[in-house]
Design a protein around this nucleic acid. Structure first.
Lengths: 327, 327
DNA sequence: CTGAAAGCGCTTACAG
DNA sequence: CTGAAAGCGCTTACAG
């Protein structure tokens, strides 16, 4: 079973390969009569002709593929929606999005060399060597930062703002001694660190003491221990900003296990507004993220970087606090 | 900035392109002296030479890429881990895994034509046309089924077994009137249907009445309505098998909002053992999945299909019930 | 309006 | 031990 090539289509329809190429790529203006076009298209369909992507890429010097390198993060709804949006936007430009889950398994170079994509997108910065090599190979590189947007051709995800929002809410609720509860999962460290930084910055701005912090497993007994230690400090903790809703639920369970009440003794605020937050008792105050707006913004940033145009404007109200009974 | 080719490396190291190719691909046995090899490799490194994947694929007639087509599902931990494992396994065979999130954006054909992968992996069956076209283009197709494993070159994910496990547990707890609570999300329908089928089959086998069922949004009031209607039936429901832990938590909240108690009036069992299940009150009984074992099995199935060898044995104990206080 | 020919960069028989 | 040459399948100036 050998491959059907444009030569086969040419033979079948009684024209040259040139004409086949012109017809199938809609080139050559109206020089080619409709009857010929018809004949070529029918022959191609009949034979099941599929242009060789390799040959085409070799000839054109570039492919129609965009490679997105995903860091070793648990895939959340923002990324999930981002993939949706990117796939659609790129398809509109004739490009296909391919995702590589970087798990440290193979050098990145092996991959982009094997794919030779038009562009490579990263959600975290690339190693300088990789980036240089990709550019040298004529591949456009679109980087990313987790927060501040320094370089052009870069897009970013604000994390610090989330921590700030949590503290502002807790202070508005009259709390003055804030702790930060981070996740156990090392893969989340980049985010968790940013959010902790946001909590710390907000505390400083608002004249609070620097927040104590701890990494919490999702375990009631361990959470209770942490809560007890926070409460036995000279300035007992009265409010906890958690990395996300899961950690927040663990804190709530820990507070209860320590014989204290939420929010009377300790107020707790999460992030994400997962379904369990609403269903918990007490229902959890949390930071809601506008997933669609964020994903749309990210996708627009990527497209701007690809096209070399200006950054799109940041969307407003990407986050806001959903007030429930845990604070 | 033009591309560095093997001709450049040849010139730089004073040998022919043939020799460059042999050295860089470790071909030609020990015909080429180590000194020459060294010289070629150094020149390649100095020049930053990157073989053209397109040219190589054109010449060899195949690429080193494997394309995984992901359905429009929310990515859970099983898939996540599967990606890890597959990436690793394939890397060991010199293949790179690329993931395409099928969101109905572009015809699948555009994609595999643009990539010309060695193989295409699907988690749901492909359209017959697509499958035929891919095979004709010399691409190996590895399909999948959600449950029964009929065809060779196919791998499967048992869903029905989960529903069965739930019912067996509920019956062991003395319940005889079982309901099934499904999710609201249409994207989950393929799974939800299988699990409901498992619940129904188990009820029949164990001599129970056919289960009533409902799709539940993650909303307390709506869940309470459903619970009330289930309770006001001639045979009031005393046990609920939920699609997953989130739905189960909604049922629990609904039972409470309806003024009833869990598990005294209604027992509830979920699936997944998410952290919130353990942290809930009452802690949720649920079906735990051996994610690693499942992913390993799936990865092994894929590799077996690729290599044309026998299916690996099903792992034991992929699921089991984690008993807590909600049943 | 259509075709012959060059060339993209690689690998690999083949010849020496 | 090494090189000249063919050829993978395509696109595109160029010539007619």
């Amino acid at each position: 079973m050998t491959r059907v090539t444009s030569a086969d289509v040419a033979r079948e329809s009684g024209v040259s390969r040139t004409t086949v190429s012109y017809v199938l790529n809609d080139k050559g203006g109206d020089a080619i009569p409709e009857a010929t076009r018809q004949r070529v298209r029918e022959a191609a369909a009949r034979l099941g002709y599929t242009p060789s992507a390799a040959a085409r890429a070799l000839r054109r010097g570039r492919s129609d593929l965009v490679l997105l390198v995903l860091p070793d993060w648990p895939i959340g709804p923002v990324i999930d929606t981002l993939l949706d949006q990117l796939t659609g936007e790129l398809a509109g430009r004739g490009l296909s999005l391919l995702v590589h889950h970087a798990r440290g398994s193979r050098p990145l170079a092996d991959l982009w060399r094997a794919v030779t994509p038009r562009a490579v997108l990263g959600l975290v910065p690339f190693a300088p060597d990789d980036e240089r090599a990709m550019r040298q190979a004529g591949i456009q590189v679109v980087g990313s930062t987790l927060d501040a947007n320094t370089d052009p051709g870069t897009f970013s995800v604000p994390q610090i703002a989330i921590g700030r929002l949590q503290v502002e809410h807790l202070v508005a609720r009259g709390r003055r001694v804030v702790a930060y509860a981070g996740p156990d999962d090392a893969r989340l460290a980049p985010f968790a660190d940013r959010r902790r930084a946001g909590v710390a910055a907000a505390c400083e701005e608002l004249g609070l003491a620097a927040p104590v912090s701890a990494a919490l497993g999702l375990d009631v007994a361990a959470a209770a221990d942490v809560v007890r230690s926070w409460r036995s400090a000279p300035e007992p903790v009265t409010a906890v900003a958690a990395y996300n809703d899961e950690v927040a639920l663990a804190v709530v369970a820990g507070v209860r296990a320590a014989g204290l009440r939420v929010p009377d003794d300790v107020a707790v605020i999460g992030v994400d507004d997962v379904p369990a937050a609403r269903l918990a008792s007490p229902p959890l105050t949390t930071v809601w993220q506008a997933i669609d707006a964020q994903a749309t913004y990210l996708a627009a940033s990527v497209m701007a970087a690809l096209d070399g145009t200006d950054e799109p404007p940041r969307p407003d109200d990407v986050f806001h606090v959903v007030v429930r009974s845990s604070t």
